[in-house]
Amino acid sequence: MSGKDREPVFPTRQALGIMKSKLKGAQVGHDLLKRKSEALTKRFREITKRIDDAKRKMGRVMQIAAFSLAEVTYAVGNNSIAYQITETARQAKFRVRTKQENVSGVFLPAFESFQVEGASEFGMTGLGKGGQQVQKCRETYTRAVETLVELASLQTAFVILDEVIKVVNRRVNAIEHVIIPRTENTIKYINSELDELDREEFFRLKKVKGVKEKVQAEEEAERQKKKKSSSDKENEEEAESKNVLGDEGDEDVIF
């Protein structure tokens, strides 16, 4: 930060007061935001770890689910069932709703899965053959998708937290590296300006004093002069009188 960077204020005592309270505010804000950022980062790390675990878990869950589909294929004997399922889908029975969770003032969405009331569209799939496997597979996949929904919540939280932490850190850094130095600079500037003013004032006063003294001196001199001329007369008189009284003015007589 260059020392020149400062707020455009007039270096007055009032501005100094404002700046000082601003600096104080910035420091408090910095501390608070820093703490927030730390809390979020902690949370963020937790979530990241959970995502890591959940993603691995998902691998297993999906594998089991895929395998249950293989069982269906085995029981039904052909794979036309896949086509039938992709074609008969109409209304989603499995849906998600979003709720919010408050972490240090950040609202993190969390998906929650729920089943819409009503019989499943696939309740009768494989009625004559393989129906039990189909239903079982349906359950397995429902569980798998629930896991996926959980993971999606984590991931969304991850994305949002990532964003929020970036913003908060940016603010923390902005306060730390821009606002505080700048305010400090301003204060320094104001102080220096005020000092300068003080010095100027002092000098001015000194000057004024000098002038005054000069004038005084002149006046004094004048007065002295006047005094002198008047006193000359007096002196003369005095001298005369002195002479009368003594012989100080006389040169020594050399004998």
Partner: peptide, 15 residues
């Protein structure tokens, strides 16, 4: 086989 399967598989459906 079909009769039994249909019966078992229809439990819990609208059939």
């Amino acid at each position: 086989r079909r009769s039994i399967n249909i019966t078992i598989n229809s439990f819990g459906t609208e059939l």
